[in-house]
């Protein structure tokens, strides 16, 4: 098991945003988290990445407990994320964004940086080349020198995904990566996620675009008011009447 979540719970002022959620994530799996707005999906991400502390429950990643770790330590353990409300380093170039994402690959600290230590130039060159290779892979190489904030929105989303991959994590949490993308871009993204899975990456995906979720996800967990109401393959979820009722309203059909 890559990630084991057990009894995860978090309250905000008496309201349970996430209530006793448990699931196990396999390697090379795309695991989708869906549910209506306010169901607690982003809270789950914030709990896994250490940005929020859980009230109860345990998180075990590759056999190691994540309890009490700070966000940067969890990133170092091999879990990175994207943000629903894009958090790019807007004033930095596209290339720099990726290189910043690859921060964990480097070792140059404050003092060595001041002294322009010879080893750090080699390290920097390597990080730069890997970053350029990654940009080429996602088709942003031509934009490497532009400020990230100058990119069109769809490219920004893609850049945020690429940045999360730059440090070579084993698990990536994607928070609505397709939000605001047009259909061509969404298709491109879905293909990319599937390609990443083939390369052995594991992903947890929060997404409202059901078509994408059904297409790429291996398993889907449905949250409502912070609780798990269903967990299964896309086919099982589509057939689950409770999901249809809670999530889509009684009259609608899943696409």
């Amino acid at each position: 098991m890559l990630l084991e979540v057990e009894g995860l719970t978090r309250h905000f002022g008496g309201v349970a945003a996430v209530k006793e959620i448990s699931f196990k994530l396999k390697k090379s799996e795309i695991f989708a988290l869906i549910g209506p707005n306010g169901a607690g999906k982003t809270t789950v991400f914030n709990l896994i990445t250490g940005m929020l502390a859980p009230d109860a429950g345990s998180l075990v990643f590759e056999g190691m407990s994540l309890a009490g770790l700070k966000p940067h330590q969890i990133a170092a353990a091999g879990i990175t994320r994207t943000f629903q409300n894009l958090q790019l380093f807007g004033g930095m170039t596209v290339l720099e964004n990726i290189m910043a994402g690859a921060h964990l690959k480097g070792r140059t600290g404050f003092l060595k940086a001041l002294a322009a230590w010879p080893g750090s130039a080699r390290e920097e060159k390597k990080i730069r080349q890997e970053a350029l290779a990654l940009l080429k892979e996602v088709g942003l190489a031509g934009l490497a020198d532009l400020p990230a904030a100058a990119l069109p929105f769809g490219r920004q989303r893609l850049l945020e995904v690429a940045r999360a991959l730059a440090s070579g994590p084993r698990l990536v949490l994607l928070d609505e990566p397709a939000a605001g993308l047009n259909s061509a871009e969404t298709k491109e993204l879905a293909d990319y996620l599937k390609r990443l899975r083939e390369e052995g990456k594991s992903m947890v995906l929060v997404e409202h675009d059901m078509e994408t979720v059904m297409e790429v996800a291996d398993r889907i967990m449905v949250l409502n008011f912070g609780e798990v109401i269903a967990l299964g393959t896309p086919a099982e979820i589509q057939a689950n009447p409770e999901v249809i009722k809670a999530y889509l309203g009684e009259d609608e059909q899943v696409a």
Binding site: M51, H72, A75, R81, Q87, L88, F89, H103, A164, A166
Partner: peptide
Amino acid sequence: ESEHAAEAAGMD
């Protein structure tokens, strides 16, 4: 630029 993203990228 973004403290949250910096932390998520493994920066202390």
